[in-house]
Amino acid sequence: MSNLVFDESSSNREASHGYAWWFSGDTFEKAMAEERKPRKRSLMHKLTTHPGRLTILYFTLLGALSTLLLLTPAATPKDEQTTFTTAFFTAISAISTCGISIVNSTTHWSAFGQAVLIFSVQMGGLGVMTFASLIALAVNHHLKATQKLLTANELGTTKLGEIKGVLTVVIATAFTIEGITFVALFPGLYKVNHGNVRHTLWESLFFAVMAYNNAGFTPDGAGLHVNNWAVGLPILVSAFCGTLGFPVLLNLMRSWRNHRPPKRWSLHTKLTLTTTFCIVLASFTWFLLMEWNNKLLFATEGVEPRLWHAMVAAVMPRSSGFDLSWMPGVSDATKVFLSIVMFIGGGSTSTAGGIRVTT
């Protein structure tokens, strides 16, 4: 009798009218044996319970698709040819949001080729943020209770299978910021392109996706337009938001909507914002102090170009990798300092690189 489980079984409650504890021990043993039988799991269930496998599969398929699309004749002008190495390198650079290009993105790729870059960077950025969150949830199952609560609070979910909820938040956050960046870029690029609406719309879309996902591809030979505040500032702000990570952005939006003061922000948000602003301020100050009299950069320019270059140097090298044609002209001390900044990188579950500011 000592091995019997005298408890009300939910499966027998209706049949026994509340007297399930009278059932024999065989009944409980059979029920437990049924529960121990291996159940058939779907492929999606197997993948979602192992986010690492799903991550590898996702980026492998995305890399293969992007490479094949870049190898098609439509991806390049008639007088250009793309080798497998170039297509593969560019595809991997795009889906990993590195933005390193070994060809001129303006002349080598056609409109279709640039569209493939936009698609690859967008899907790569969403994948990085989503799978980072899912892996955090997977690790969450092996943490202590207090750590589980913290992780659940940051990601807005507690179950590993809630991919739909995590993905929805990531997509909504990304598209909202990219949409705002697109609108903000249009007036400045409209002047740069001398009223060409079609080209302005395309460049606004290209820069909006690349900026938030911290990828360094540019749609024209002018690069980042470092001397144009109307174009450079929206890109700078969008790239900065991309380095924070969507849990921080989500917490800030919820706090703003619910009128929560900063002291009620999550610990992760406070830590990310504090560390990020400290790094940006230190980089900005360092650049002004070390490069103010740099004749290679500022031969005849006044104060405004120095301030703008300092802002770009404080934000862009950490993660986005946009073309900074003036970077070789900085001093060796600044190059070492920026190397440290790049090593630190941006926030967790963001597309920024480095060891993360929260580490």
Results as ranks from 00 to 15, higher is better:
290 M>Y: 12
209 V>Q: 00
220 D>G: 06
262 P>I: 15
200 T>V: 13
296 L>R: 06
196 N>H: 08
283 S>M: 03
247 P>E: 12
226 V>A: 12
306 R>V: 05
273 L>P: 05
292 W>H: 15
216 G>K: 07
299 A>E: 15
256 W>V: 11
290 M>I: 12
290 M>Q: 12
219 P>K: 04
254 R>S: 15
282 A>Y: 09
291 E>I: 15
257 R>H: 15
226 V>S: 11
287 F>N: 13
295 K>I: 05
311 M>A: 08
239 A>W: 04
260 R>W: 08
279 I>D: 02
278 C>E: 14
260 R>F: 08
202 W>G: 04
214 N>T: 10
247 P>L: 14
241 C>Y: 04
223 G>R: 04
296 L>K: 08
286 W>L: 13
283 S>Y: 11
217 F>H: 13
236 L>M: 05
224 L>M: 07
256 W>T: 08
213 N>W: 01
295 K>P: 02
220 D>N: 12
214 N>R: 02
297 L>E: 03
285 T>F: 07
262 P>T: 07
276 T>A: 10
183 V>Q: 02
261 P>N: 08
265 W>K: 05
317 P>N: 01
206 F>M: 03
285 T>W: 02
294 N>G: 12
263 K>Y: 13
270 K>S: 03
300 T>I: 09
271 L>E: 06
322 F>T: 01
272 T>S: 00
252 L>A: 03
219 P>N: 08
289 L>M: 13
202 W>Y: 11
191 K>Q: 11
303 V>D: 06
218 T>E: 12
316 M>L: 05
299 A>K: 00
258 N>T: 15
240 F>G: 02
305 P>L: 05
200 T>P: 06
289 L>K: 14
216 G>I: 06
246 F>L: 08
259 H>M: 03
254 R>L: 14
298 F>A: 02
185 L>E: 13
201 L>R: 03
239 A>R: 10
196 N>Y: 09
225 H>F: 12
287 F>D: 10
286 W>I: 15
237 V>F: 13
254 R>Y: 05
254 R>T: 14
222 A>T: 11
191 K>S: 14
291 E>R: 07
237 V>E: 07
281 L>H: 07
271 L>F: 03
316 M>S: 09
261 P>W: 01
219 P>Q: 11
298 F>S: 04
199 H>T: 15
247 P>Y: 15
278 C>I: 15
237 V>G: 12
321 G>A: 01
193 N>Q: 14
244 L>K: 00
